[in-house]
């Protein structure tokens, strides 16, 4: 292991940001450490310093304010999964966090961590992108908010500057009558990361035509994939099998799928087609909130 590795344990966001500003890319932020420990121990990263933010107060809140579900960066996956506030406002968020890995990882891994890691095969990002969530970050120049769809830039790369940390995620609570689902399709063991994960959000008018349709595909490409032009085509039309197939085909055509041990690019494209269809079908059938 590289030496020396310095450890910082700031007790405020400002203090953490100051360390990052001083050390630049040589410092890595760590919270639950499930991802960082793996990357570090497999020597995929070699930071000179760790900034452990677990003791910073005020980042563990779960609340609904002004029509938004607000999750603090240090809230664990397990806390999201079990939270009555989350289940009562946007149940699909609890559902998606509950599908991550196993109970041990969910006890440690945090909301801020899964965002900042930007692993293409994590479950929550696709759900946040589909729900138009916003990521709140803080750096030397103060706070700013980044739409989730712009936050994930590339493979393990985010819109964060080196001196910025994620402080929370805000998710607009969808209007009543909206169905939202997350389908995690795994090709190996039950607790594995997905081959393809699809978040679907659907709201229908009383006459069965589409009022709102949002689809984000995770784990199939470097970042969660959402195609607003395709979504827009469905608005105002009756949600029938033809329309759903059109959207699913359009997603299969547009997602530039990747190859890994969970599936080839060709296979992923076909699974995108299948799971986008199923996500729209089940979101439309999901009980209205």
């Amino acid at each position: 292991m590289p030496e020396p590795l310095r450890l910082f344990q700031p007790t405020s966001i400002e203090e953490a940001v100051a360390v990052l500003a001083e050390l630049g890319d040589d410092a890595k932020v760590v919270a639950g450490a499930t991802a960082l420990t793996l990357l570090y121990r497999q020597r995929l990263i070699a930071p000179g310093a760790l900034v452990s933010i677990g003791r910073i107060p005020g980042l563990k809140t779960i609340e609904v304010v002004d029509g938004e579900l607000r999750l603090g960066a240090l809230v664990s996956h397990r806390e999201v999964e079990l939270s009555p506030v989350v289940r009562g406002s946007i149940p699909v968020v609890a559902d998606a966090f509950g599908k991550v890995a196993n109970v041990r990882v969910r006890n440690a891994a945090t909301v801020g961590g899964v965002m900042a890691e930007s692993d293409y095969a994590s479950d929550p990002p696709a759900v946040f992108v589909a729900l138009d969530a916003v990521v709140d970050v803080q750096g030397s120049n103060g706070k700013r908010s980044i739409p989730a769809s712009e936050f994930f830039v590339a493979f393990y790369e985010t819109a964060l500057e080196h001196d910025e940390i994620v402080i929370g995620v805000r998710v607009p609570v969808p209007p009543a009558g909206t169905g939202a689902v997350y389908h995690k399709f795994v090709t190996r063991s039950s607790e594995d990361r997905p081959c393809v994960g699809v978040a679907g959000v659907v709201r229908l008018h009383a006459d069965g035509t589409v009022a709102d349709l949002r689809v984000a595909v995770g784990a199939a490409a470097e970042t969660p994939q959402r195609f607003r032009d395709t979504e827009a085509l469905a608005i105002g039309k009756p949600l029938d099998a033809d329309l759903i197939a059109q959207v699913a085909d359009a997603y299969a055509d547009q997602v530039d799928t990747l190859d890994d041990m969970r599936g080839s690019a060709w296979y992923r494209t076909e699974m995108v087609r299948v799971w986008v269809r199923r996500a729209i079908e089940s979101a439309a059938a999901a009980p209205a909130r």
Partner: peptide, 22 residues
């Protein structure tokens, strides 16, 4: 790598993979 559970310990009462805790 946090998959198998052989290293499970309780941390503040909750099971975690001790191989993924620094």
């Amino acid at each position: 790598v946090g998959m198998c559970g052989a290293c499970t310990v309780m941390l503040d009462g909750e099971p975690v993979s001790s191989c993924l805790v620094l």
